[in-house]
Amino acid sequence: MGPFLWLLLAALVTAVAGLSIKLHLIRRAAGEIARGFQEKLRGDTNTLIDISSRDKAMRELASEINAELRRLRRERLRYQQGDLELKAAVTNISHDLRTPLTAICGYLELLQGEELTEKAEEYTGIIKGRTELLRTLTEELFRYCVVLSDPGGLSVEPVDLGAALETSLASFYAVFTEKGITPEIIMPEERVMRRLDKAALSRVFSNLLSNAAKYSDGDLRVELTVEGRLSFANTCRALSGVEVEKLFDRFYTVEAARKSTGLGLSIARALAERMGGELIAEYIDGSLVMTAVFLN
């Protein structure tokens, strides 16, 4: 092999080695950008992506991503500020409405104790019903805003899920009896313990059972598993799969629940998530299945 071929071979080897090193550096820079991007999205930090590579194209890419991260951070702060202001305003409004609504309800009670004509009794009953609905909505608005605006207000302790569920079911005995519902209850033999807020858990169960009583066609199946999954299933032909997907939306109600505020399930999901759990709604073969999951 002549000197020229040796020189050509050496040049090729050098070029391949150089390209391999450059490719390795680019791949390392891409990994740094990917890890940095995920870290910045997950955490609430003002730091930006920094890479070790001196490659112009990769540094330009990192710079463009940093510019978008700064824009995203500004939008997030603006949203958080607006959200906090809205929650504070709704909380104050709902709190201020409590006193006049309580007075109105009190005077309506007094009025119903007076001698009224048949029409006056009918109108008074309608007014009382609408006032009670408004008071319920005001209370739910207040609770909803308190739940969302106080992320650290939980008192965590060991809780027996089965015992808590039995207590909630017992409190709904009269409601189920009135609606002709005899719940089928399935519990594991062993205790299912989780570290949760007992009052918040009771609220979650209460809202789920209230929803079941509201939508049920006459049946209810409640099951607790040792893994910490609680399902509330009832036949409900009045609902559709599309409506079930919207049940956790704020203020969403269906025609069958016109007296609902549309906040109960939103509150239940918010509380479940704050305790590290999950709340899921499914529509399976004509049945509404609400599942609360507490794995930890």
Score class of each variant (00 low, 15 high):
Lys128Glu: 12
Glu190Gly: 08
Lys119Asn: 15
Met1Ile: 02
Asp55Gly: 03
Gly31Glu: 12
Ala199Cys: 03
Ala103Asn: 12
Val204Gly: 02
Ala89Asp: 01
Phe294Asn: 02
Thr131Val: 15
Val146Met: 02
Ala88Ser: 13
Asn211Phe: 04
Glu178Gly: 09
Thr14Arg: 11
Pro188Phe: 02
Asp197Leu: 01
Thr167His: 09
Ile181Arg: 01
Leu239Gln: 01
Val90Thr: 09
Glu121Asn: 15
Tyr107Trp: 12
Leu263Phe: 06
Arg194Gly: 00
Thr136Ala: 06
Val226Phe: 08
Ala199Leu: 12
Gln38Ala: 08
Tyr123Arg: 07
Ala67Ser: 12
Thr45Cys: 07
Phe37Trp: 06
Tyr144Glu: 10
Glu114Gln: 15
Arg274Asp: 01
Glu282Trp: 02
Leu48Tyr: 11
Ser287Arg: 11
Ala29Asp: 00
Glu282Ile: 02
Met187Tyr: 15
Val293Phe: 06
Ile185Pro: 09
Arg194Cys: 00
Pro3Thr: 06
Thr45Asp: 05
Lys214Asn: 11
Lys214Ala: 14
Ser202Cys: 06
Leu133Asp: 04
Leu111Ala: 15
Arg78Cys: 04
Gly218Val: 06
Arg27Thr: 06
Glu189Ser: 15
Asn66Leu: 09
Ala257Tyr: 03
Leu5Lys: 13
Tyr173Gly: 02
Asp55Pro: 07
Tyr215Trp: 13
Thr131Ser: 15
Leu25Pro: 05
Asp160Thr: 00
Ser216Gly: 06
Val13Trp: 05
Pro158Phe: 08
Phe176Gln: 01
Ala174Cys: 05
Ala213Thr: 10
Met275Cys: 02
Ser63Phe: 11
Glu140Arg: 03
Leu230Phe: 09
Ala34Trp: 10
Phe294Gly: 00
